[in-house]
Design a protein around this nucleic acid. Structure first.
Length: 110
DNA sequence: CATGTGACGCCTG
DNA sequence: CCAGGCGCCACAT
């Protein structure tokens, strides 16, 4: 019984892109979708929510297009967002309120 | 094959 | 400025 996880090509692409994002940099769902050859930012969230490669995949480096967080560990609770924010701070990022400072500069380019 | 879901994004109040 | 609602795409059942 080969327990090979059948991951959709789209999801695979997302993981591939996300894995190449270095520490101190962040990306957005829209950007990932764009780099994945699609505009389905929604699907990106779905894929990350499954997160079968965590913590291999730095899903905490994925933020919303406006620099705000949406969820982490498959949870949307304030605690999860706080933890995600904390992790990003540890990577050298600076948060101002609920949004990332210098978001444009911190955004990774594929 | 059809319907529902979802860690979004943008518009409007 | 903040909060809420609607729309879009891909995937799961």
């Amino acid at each position: 019984m080969t327990k090979e996880k059948i991951i959709s090509p789209f999801a695979k692409k997302i993981y591939q892109l996300l894995k190449q994002v270095p520490s101190g940099y962040v990306t957005t769902y829209a950007d990932l979708a764009r780099a994945a050859n699609c505009k389905a930012y929604r699907a990106v969230g779905q894929v990350l929510r499954n997160n079968p490669f965590a913590p291999t995949v730095p899903c905490h480096r994925v933020l919303a297009s406006d620099g705000s967080l949406h969820g982490f560990k498959g949870l949307r609770t304030k605690e999860s967002l706080e933890l995600k924010m904390q992790l990003l701070k540890e990577e050298g990022l600076i948060f101002e309120g609920k949004k990332l400072k210098n978001f444009s500069e911190r955004k990774w380019r594929f």
